[in-house]
């Protein structure tokens, strides 16, 4: 076979075009599934998510090692963008109080934020279902596993089916000890290692399990001028200097 370089280039172009088609799925590789999505705000994460962002119209389950390791910050850019376009952000049964000034600093339009605190698990699931059905909601976040009640088998499936009907970002936060077999279309595990928040994709549409993504979520927090680690140490040693002296 004698093919000129230009011809082979053209062929590669055609091949790439074919392979990039949404209907073609390569077994060894993560397929680009054409699902509606909202950009997550983290480019490193977007490349691994189906549809290049948080998928809407499905349940995303986020397994959190411990609360307070960056799980909320992970979803905040997408949710904030939705509130800016006048769609409501609904937070159901959060473990702590979402702090309004910090939310505003993340770009959340606070007049489009709702906080629901049901007392029982049944009410939590009901409120979540209602939120998923409502036309005005852009993102719904539900924190589960806070009570010792067992989550009914079909409850999550019900939520998944409700979410499918509407173009809404649905996030379920669960403790990482929770059951591993669920209906969610996207399942992530969030942990914290060496100062970074590490996101592992456990399940996604399109197949393939990518390498964990490390995100540095707290850089801006720690690199503010005037508030350095040295200052903090200095403060502590200054404050305690007299007490050390007396000993």
């Amino acid at each position: 076979m004698n093919t000129s370089p230009s011809a082979s280039q053209a062929l590669t172009g055609v091949l790439t075009g074919v392979l990039n088609h949404s209907a073609v799925w390569r077994g060894n590789d993560f397929a680009q599934v054409a699902t509606p999505s909202v950009p997550s705000g983290f480019a490193e994460l977007d490349v691994h998510l189906p549809g290049s962002g948080w998928p809407t119209g499905v349940i995303t389950e986020i397994h959190v090692e411990r609360p307070g390791i960056g799980e909320l910050q992970l979803v905040m850019p997408a949710a904030a963008r939705l509130t800016q376009s006048d769609r409501w952000q609904v937070m159901i049964a959060p473990p702590y109080l979402p702090y309004a000034p910090a939310l505003a600093a993340h770009g959340v339009k606070l007049s489009r934020l709702m906080l629901i605190r049901p007392k029982t698990l049944t009410e939590q699931l009901w409120a979540c279902e209602q939120a998923l059905q409502s036309e005005s909601c852009g993102s719904v976040m539900l924190w589960l596993d806070q009570t010792s009640e067992r989550i009914p088998e079909n409850a999550l499936r019900r939520l998944q089916l409700t979410a499918e009907r509407r173009n809404v970002l649905a996030m379920l936060f669960r403790a990482s000890r929770a059951a591993s077999c669920t209906q969610a279309a996207l399942r992530l595990h969030v942990s914290r290692e060496t100062g970074n928040t590490v996101v592992r994709i456990l399940k996604r549409r399109g197949g393939g399990i990518p390498a964990p993504v490390a995100l540095d979520l707290h850089t801006s927090l720690l690199r503010r001028p005037g508030t350095t680690q040295r200052d903090a140490f200095k403060y502590v040693s200054d404050a305690y200097a007299p007490s050390f002296a007396t000993h």
């Binding site: 000034p101 709702m114 007392k119």
Partner: peptide
């Protein structure tokens, strides 16, 4: 939500 969970179950936040 108010009708089912009571009037205090839902709120918004303002700075």
């Amino acid at each position: 939500i108010n009708a089912r969970l009571g009037a205090n179950a839902i709120c918004g936040l303002t700075p």
